[in-house]
Design a binder for these strands. Sequence first.
DNA 1: AATCCTACATGACCACAGTCATATTTAAAT
DNA 2: ATTTAAATATGACTGTGGTCATGTAGGATT
Lengths: 200, 200
Amino acid sequence: MSLREKKKIETKNKIFEVSGRLFKEKGFENTTIDEITKEAEIGKGTFFNYFPTKEALLLYFVEQKDELTYSLIEIETARSIPTKDKIKNLLVFLAESYETDKELTKLLIFEYIKYIRSTGLKSGEDQSRHHRLSKILHDFLEDGVKKGEVKGGIDVKIAAETLTAVYFHSVMVWLWSENDYSISEDISGMIDLVFEGIGS
Amino acid sequence: MSLREKKKIETKNKIFEVSGRLFKEKGFENTTIDEITKEAEIGKGTFFNYFPTKEALLLYFVEQKDELTYSLIEIETARSIPTKDKIKNLLVFLAESYETDKELTKLLIFEYIKYIRSTGLKSGEDQSRHHRLSKILHDFLEDGVKKGEVKGGIDVKIAAETLTAVYFHSVMVWLWSENDYSISEDISGMIDLVFEGIGS
DNA sequence: AATCCTACATGACCACAGTCATATTTAAAT
DNA sequence: ATTTAAATATGACTGTGGTCATGTAGGATT
């Protein structure tokens, strides 16, 4: 590895380290680029050589967290249990992983939307939460059909989307609710309902 | 009405008029407060006497559009048709009302989230899209139960939330998709699924 | 009609994200 | 070694949203 590459990595790490600390200390909005660059002992312009915007930095944290979460999930859900339980476990686990820090999650979702708004989810490049989750659910459901636990006649794709919808909606409502209720029950109830159907 | 009140209304209208025109001409982001105030022939500070932020202005447009839409809906859905169709009509109608201007809708949703993020949907004051839609669906479903078109055993509240979830999710996915497919079919398919259930 | 009070108007000013021309450091070429 | 080229660093500068102390005009009080 050349000297240049070493320095680059070093600088990027320094920015992470410092900004991570500052964000925790005083929040994202109250931390300025000037502060970060001063603490990291680099010029202001240098920051923008590594991250195009302040938000891009935040986004990196999101990606890292997601990476970890999804890898955990894939292990966890490999167990062979009833399809419905598997789906419940998955969605509840995901939801609970946000439960630790409501404010941060709000911020991240917000920045995420801001991001996809400006970039427009270019050409499948971004396998975003949505597609990823949807795909996993899709697999679960197909498996469920094979095992006879899910109706054979349904469109698995639409079913996966519906469950994804239920999940995201629950998280959103929970995030912006004042009182701290358990999101798990909510999701669980909706999944039951989707399995049973509401038509008579 | 005093002269003061008249001037106030006049100024507010002027800001609307001018900003509406400029937003259409060059987009929200590319329109500066300086431009708006110059065109409206007011001081820059004056703008902030009427709207706390630039986004607040945008939000007003949202509210006005919503007001119109919901009043139309309440008339439209009074007709006595099968519950499922009623729900389909409602959600498809709502979704299609966004279909005319994808970019603007994105912007509005984004600003809306930004707004509720900062204010936190204080104390029921904001009867937001979500609660409003959820309530209408709730009524529809209860009516459906009475008419025997919806299962009696289910929790109507959860069912309403599930349908709301399906709706919002469809709109979101549609908004940020590249290709222009029909959102109506999507929603329609999901509603069918929720009525039938996916469990075997 | 003179005085006072209050609501509103105003633009100089500030904070901060992001840019860019220039400088510096590293690597390659000779 | 020297020169050349390319990558990276830098901070003065800019654009813009938002603030605030001060000014001004409408309306009440005498």
